[in-house]
Design a protein around this nucleic acid. Sequence first.
DNA 1: ATAAAATTTTTACGCGCGATAATTTTTGAA
DNA 2: TTCAAAAATTATCGCGCGTAAAAATTTTAT
Lengths: 344, 344
Amino acid sequence: MKQPKFRNMEEFAAASGISRPTVSKYFNDPDSVRPSTRNRIEAALEKYDYRPNMFAMNQNRKLTKNIGIVVPYLADPFFAEIARNLQERCILAGFQPTLFSAHGKQAFENDILDSLRSLKPAGVLMAPLGRRNSDRSEIEKFCKDVPTILFDSNIDGVGEAFVGSDNVSFVSQTVDYLTRTGESPCFFEMTEPANPNAFKRHDAYLAKMEQLGLEPHLIRVEGQGWDFERVGYLGGLSVLDKGLLPTRTVLCSNDRLAIGFLAACYERGVRVGHGVENGLRVASHDDHPYARYTCPALTTAAHDYEVVSRRAVESLFELIESGGSLGQRKETLVTPRLVLRASA
Amino acid sequence: MKQPKFRNMEEFAAASGISRPTVSKYFNDPDSVRPSTRNRIEAALEKYDYRPNMFAMNQNRKLTKNIGIVVPYLADPFFAEIARNLQERCILAGFQPTLFSAHGKQAFENDILDSLRSLKPAGVLMAPLGRRNSDRSEIEKFCKDVPTILFDSNIDGVGEAFVGSDNVSFVSQTVDYLTRTGESPCFFEMTEPANPNAFKRHDAYLAKMEQLGLEPHLIRVEGQGWDFERVGYLGGLSVLDKGLLPTRTVLCSNDRLAIGFLAACYERGVRVGHGVENGLRVASHDDHPYARYTCPALTTAAHDYEVVSRRAVESLFELIESGGSLGQRKETLVTPRLVLRASA
DNA sequence: ATAAAATTTTTACGCGCGATAATTTTTGAA
DNA sequence: TTCAAAAATTATCGCGCGTAAAAATTTTAT
């Protein structure tokens, strides 16, 4: 059984036989004290179980050990997964990450920026709602105050760096694959996407088709918000019922749309799959955690979650160590990899 | 354009013509000052844009406005959805929620408790990893220090109250429905579930079958961790290939298992659906956000997210207002509702 | 109008820790 | 052993705000 807790650092320092400023230094950075004293402090820590008051700690520190992680929509498993990854890396580096989700709404995103300011974070990792949905001027102001790395979705010139997957490569790989193995695809997308990467993929599809000397076909379905599966499902039903598919190969802008589209195909009895007689081929982008459990399993281009999150955190630490400015805004694009499954 | 920010409350108070202690009172509880002075402060707030330093604020306050929300696994859309719901409610009530995920690991869960202590939260909403996976004694100690409401998964006697869905009712409804519309189901589950509700559902299945005078059949598949879809998929393949299904009606312990199982059925060409010739019927529990996009769409019993989150937050506020103890530990079980789709 | 009640102002202290400067001790190399 | 560099100690402030008590003011009731 451990000693009753101390009321403050003074008492703990006394009990461990070290002066308070040294203990304070230790908590700020354990490596900043001599190994022998570090051991003594850690021995006392084992014995007595004391934790500094984080409010008092952060009040006067120029730089806290807090890190903010902001995602646009946490109920999207893609963001849940990458947020988990980022959090773990921050903790391992001795920081204390706090997770925020804008839940798809600009008002929340702005509220989060306010909350973040009062956290006085050493740095922020932010995946914004995107160019069209974020309040650019607010985010810009925020990035002037707080060292911020954008990830997943870029806003030109905002933040000290950007790390994300290469949307052009996503589309290029899938279109290439589909074209080589059969008919080239039409592109299934939302008319008003919530996800900003959708625009880049749209452009990349048109460019790639032009490069290949092929005629592009866009299938644009109605719907807004973040309920992509629903949009893909309803749009899919409508497209199938009206016979609007210009090709038998469909490339969806993202996996969540594809999940809905495949559900629509199943419901209408439309067969889907690579090598399926008279079947549709369906492919997509992201490698959503559920992409391998669709029917049939989804051929898609996969984010390299591991590399994206590692690079983002590395960039942030570099930024923090540099004192808040990197001089040059750096954009890192991680190359996705094609994952072949049964759907195309 | 707003004034350059003030360095502290003193300056803001001076600029707004109110004394600092009164301003302090206002930030602690806007209703504790006279309406006329409240208006004056809020007018100044509009004009000058000042926010109190949250670290200095919380340092001496006995009770902060912080609320901790802890879930076992944020990448599970069920928890993502309910966390979102809880967060919104807390914000509306003027609290500042902070979200934590244990990522399925006991060590993380314990770390979170430590972080929470130093947040000095007014209260905590916690969905623990569960009786078998949580460190009961640690959570118990924590609940003694911090007013805590458990939700989703109960640990007997721990916390001031529990709010969750009624697992018995889940199973009772699905078994009843399946039995009335055809053959009664076998029960598809994991041998070592990560999710504690699985045990309750297991027991409820056996009890229900006994009550109906029917013979229960358990199909228990190997696998551990939180990758339920994978477990359901691999287990499904194995069961189908070995012809181990005792009945043509399968009730899965939860939707994520069912998603994997349905993928296995699809891959093996096993037809599934209500009214499908020679088809399997598959049903489940939770109404996972993706349950309507499986192939076929999943018949399931649905959590009432809305009610569970509302009740949990209500209980917490009651607990906070009562000063940290309700006297009697209250357990609230919300009744799920059957959602009929194509799979059964 | 006057007394009583409610609210605000004034004044002052303390919280727990970060930070600094001056002093003393320890370390490690010559 | 000697001495300079490195580290720890002592002493002392200040941060921004909560909080408490007493005095002054405003509001409400009579």
